[in-house]
Design a protein around this nucleic acid. Structure first.
Length: 258
DNA sequence: CCCTATGTTCCCAA
DNA sequence: CTTGGGAACATAGG
């Protein structure tokens, strides 16, 4: 579920609530999530985000890397109460952080060695159009698939890929190598605007996304194509189509996305 | 009951 | 190396 804006929302909210706080207890409710040990007495020294991964750095320099995948959520509660689908909990003096994840895809690992980074990295931190073009010009895969490739850019998933390509008026099926540099620049601009706005909205609650405090985001009210199959395009009045691309539902307007 | 859908990513075969 | 499909899993809806 959570893409860059959702994970960034969690990162910011976690910074407000657990930075410098001591871990007084923790528990694994579903062993599939991974192994946790040595957390007692540690404090959270920083909370970082790498693409869609959330990283909590401890005062002994270990890093806890959480991948929420499809349905993973984090929930802060002042009164410790275990909710269905809880996978692990980390308790602090003033409350408890729970990972809720019905589909059980989320993973949680210690890492000290930096894992491989995306070539371009965070799409909000650099101007990446020319670097992306350097890759895309040699690839025949659909431009949408490349935009979602975490080894290339970190953090763009299915919802925002659909929205970004609509805003840039690019057909998601276009082979990446056929997208001109000036069109990539439109994608970069749309990406920056949309991701920033989505962060301000605390993410997209089109299904079960909730922020750290259990509240819905607001970007679902801003969506222009995602989940709008059969409705009219807000730019040109054409009819929004839904196709299946690389196993993902893909929404676009065939009339104005060329 | 059956089939399809869902925000992700890893693994594998062509 | 690139690409696309299936699996991992749970739940909802037609």
């Amino acid at each position: 579920m959570p893409e860059l804006p959702e994970v960034e929302t969690l990162r910011r909210q976690l910074c407000e609530i657990v930075l410098g706080e001591e871990i007084v207890d923790f528990g694994i409710h579903d062993a599939r999530i991974g192994v946790m040990r040595g957390l007692h007495g540690r404090t959270i020294s920083s909370v970082l985000r790498h693409g869609k991964a959330l990283v909590m750095k401890l005062d002994d320099n270990t890093e806890l890397l959480l991948q929420l995948r499809m349905t993973g959520r984090l929930l802060w509660q002042e009164n410790h109460h275990v909710i269905p689908h809880t996978r692990f909990v980390i308790s602090f003096p003033h409350g408890t952080l729970s990972c809720i994840d019905p589909r059980r895809f989320a993973t949680f690992v210690f890492h000290k060695n930096r894992s491989p980074q995306a070539i371009i990295g965070d799409p909000l931190k650099t101007r990446w159009a020319s670097a992306f073009y350097g890759i895309s010009c040699a690839r025949r895969t659909p431009v949408k698939a490349l935009l979602m490739d975490q080894r290339v850019i970190a953090g763009i998933g299915n919802i925002y890929a659909c929205e970004i390509l609509h805003a840039a008026a690019i057909n998601p099926m276009r082979p990446a190598c056929n997208v001109r540099l000036e069109e990539i620049e439109l994608i970069e601009k749309a990406g920056r605007d949309i991701l920033k706005k989505a962060i301000e909205c605390r993410g997209t609650s089109v299904s079960d996304w909730r922020d750290l405090f259990g509240l819905c985001g607001e970007y679902q009210d801003e969506l222009k194509v995602y989940k709008r199959e059969g409705l009219s395009c807000m730019r040109c009045g054409g009819t929004i189509c839904r196709i299946r691309m690389n196993g993902r539902g893909t929404y676009f307007c065939p009339h104005c996305q060329k």
